[in-house]
Amino acid sequence: MTIMTITIERTPRTLTVGGNAIQVEELDLRVPFARKPADLSEVGGSGSYRVFVTETREMSAIEFDAFAAQLLLSREWLSGKGGYAEDGRLCVEISAPGRPILLVDPSGSDYGRYVARIG
């Protein structure tokens, strides 16, 4: 088995969103987001957006697989997060051992409304 390591430069930033200052990490890459993908096979999309990570959620491989299989399922921990800022998306970064990195922008909802994949 080959293990791939992805290194992404991150820059701490303060964004003003809706009159509130929030701390984010801007990723040094632009990615396409899929709108309302049902599962990981539908993640791709078009366009190219900057990514502002508002939080990182570590999962086990089993938790990740369950999440990625039902991206439209309601999840309380996504509720009210995400949105659009500058020319990028406010995202929850999701990682698990041996899995791609997912960037989820629920845009105020509680499911994976916009999802990108790295790896």
Rank of each mutant, 00 (worst) to 15 (best):
M1Q: 02
I3M: 01
M4W: 00
I6Q: 12
T7D: 13
T7R: 11
I8C: 08
I8H: 00
R13T: 10
R13E: 14
R13K: 14
L15R: 01
L15F: 01
T16Y: 09
T16P: 09
V17E: 04
G19K: 09
G19C: 11
N20P: 02
Q23G: 14
V24H: 00
V24G: 00
D28I: 10
D28R: 08
L29T: 13
L29N: 03
V31A: 08
V31G: 02
V31T: 05
V31P: 00
V31I: 14
P32Y: 07
R35E: 13
R35A: 15
K36Y: 15
K36I: 04
K36A: 08
K36Q: 15
P37E: 15
A38C: 02
A38M: 12
D39M: 12
D39Q: 06
L40S: 01
E42R: 15
E42A: 14
V43H: 03
G44Q: 15
G45W: 04
G45M: 11
S48K: 08
R50D: 14
V51G: 06
F52D: 01
V53P: 04
T54P: 04
T54R: 11
E55I: 02
T56S: 09
E58N: 03
F64Q: 00
F64R: 00
D65S: 12
D65F: 08
A66G: 07
A66T: 09
F67C: 09
A68P: 04
A68L: 07
Q70G: 06
Q70V: 07
L71H: 08
S74L: 12
R75L: 14
E76D: 13
E76N: 12
E76S: 15
W77C: 13
S79D: 11
S79L: 07
K81Y: 00
G82Q: 05
Y84V: 13
G88A: 05
G88Y: 00
R89N: 08
R89P: 05
V92S: 01
V92F: 02
E93P: 08
I94C: 08
S95C: 14
A96S: 05
G98L: 05
G98F: 03
R99G: 03
L102T: 00
L103W: 11
L103R: 03
L103I: 06
S107R: 02
S109Q: 13
S109F: 04
Y111H: 11
Y111A: 12
G112E: 14
R113P: 03
Y114T: 00
Y114D: 13
R117F: 02
R117Y: 05
R117A: 12
R117M: 15
I118N: 10
I118R: 03
G119R: 08
G119A: 05
